[in-house]
Amino acid sequence: MKRRHLGRALAMVIFVAVVVSYFIPLPYYVTKPGMAKELAPIIKVEDGYKESGDFKLTTISMGEANVFTYGLAKLMKYWDIYREDEIRGEEETDKQYEMRQLQEMEGSKVKAIISAYREAGKSYTPIYRGVYVYGIVAGLPAEKVLEVGDRITEVDGQRFTSSKQFIHYVSGKRAGKTLKLEIIRDKQALQKEVQLAKLPKTGKVGMGIVLVDDVAVKTEPKVTIDTAKIGGPSAGLMFTLEIYNQLVKEDITKGKDIAGTGTMDENGNVGPIGGIHQKVVAADKSGAEVFFAPNEKGEAGSNYSVAKKTAEDINTDMKIVPVDTLQDALDYLEKMKK
């Protein structure tokens, strides 16, 4: 009887230990293959052409590690473990990281629209909306006033047409000078004041923010991209291909299931991303027949070389295609057989 009670007690202790370990975070992140998501349902060009196949973005799944997921990642193939400082910036909070990822996604959509509309010969007009606060230098006055995700639309009653103009105006002031800002935060217009200071690394005068241009695009025909809470810039190439395909009469999917990844700039250049081995696994599980991978001009250890090695390792029939530009992808699709 005593042994039975001891056995139950031991089982209860183990159960509690497992539950507790699940909720205790570790200073690591775990990533694993995510999903391959069809783009046609989330990208809509007004009166756009339909397609017989699919373009898909690919993702990785990431979360804070606990004892359970950390141990599992040690055992599972294509699961990776990263230190916090490898994922988040120095002194960057979870909220700031999330905001940065969402802003990178917004920038990715703008660049994809510009590249696709230019390639299709359609009308588009970039609209400068202000300076987006991408990061904040710790210890400077701006840290107590601004937040990552704020959009600065006016400085001392002036509006600018580029971040270069903004930087030129600010750097021309002296340390200790207070600037009056108009910002947009959570869709609300706010008035703020920020005192300038000398930046610790350069000694130049500034607010102590990392910034990027906040740009929207007016197009004809109109296009909408509903990415919900998907973050990061890595879907740029696939966004571009989906938008382009809805703009032109010829269906460049030719009925095939096409996945891929890679950033996209305004000039149609494809850039590398992280976690491509996991994205290859995700694409293969979704049934993709083709996977576009950034070639990085053939450099050793490029996204393409890693993707190709992963494809061989999982023994997939999916074709891995290297691309440096949007044109590389279009050229491949043009020659691709139905």
Rank of each mutant, 00 (worst) to 15 (best):
E154D: 06
E143C: 00
P126G: 01
Y117L: 04
G130A: 10
G157N: 07
G135A: 15
K122E: 15
H168T: 14
Q188N: 08
G172C: 02
E143K: 00
I114Y: 01
G130L: 09
Y117I: 01
K164Q: 13
I184F: 06
S163D: 14
Y128A: 01
Y117W: 10
K164T: 09
Y128G: 00
Y128L: 06
I184C: 04
V137Q: 03
I136E: 03
A112N: 11
I167D: 13
G135R: 10
G121S: 12
D186G: 11
G135F: 03
I184H: 05
I152Y: 05
L140C: 02
K111A: 06
G139F: 05
E143W: 02
R159W: 06
Q188P: 00
Y124H: 13
I167S: 11
L181P: 01
S162A: 11
T153K: 13
L140Q: 07
I113P: 03
K187V: 02
A175E: 13
P126M: 01
Y124D: 09
A116C: 13
L146H: 03
G121Y: 12
G121C: 14
R159H: 10
T153L: 08
R159K: 15
L146R: 05
L179A: 06
K111T: 03
R129I: 06
G157A: 05
I113R: 00
G139V: 08
G172T: 03
L181A: 03
L140Y: 06
F160V: 10
V133T: 12
V155G: 08
I114V: 15
V137Y: 07
S115E: 13
I114R: 00
T125M: 14
I113Y: 02
V133G: 10
D150Q: 09
I136W: 01
D150F: 08
G172R: 02
A138D: 13
K164W: 01
I136C: 05
V155P: 09
V148T: 10
V148K: 08
V155Q: 10
L179C: 07
E143N: 00
D186F: 06
I136S: 03
D186V: 04
A120I: 12
E143G: 00
I183A: 03
I127C: 10
G135E: 14
V131E: 11
Y124C: 08
R159V: 11
E147R: 12
P141D: 11
Q188S: 05
D150P: 09
G139S: 08
H168G: 06
P141H: 05
E182I: 08
Y169D: 03
E143R: 00
V137E: 14
I152E: 04
R159G: 14
L179Y: 04
A112K: 10
Q165M: 10
A175C: 02
I136Y: 00
A120L: 14
H168D: 14
Y128T: 00
Y169E: 02
S171D: 04
V170T: 02
Y128W: 14
A138S: 13
A142F: 06
I113S: 05
R174S: 11
S163G: 09
I167W: 13
R118L: 11
D186K: 12
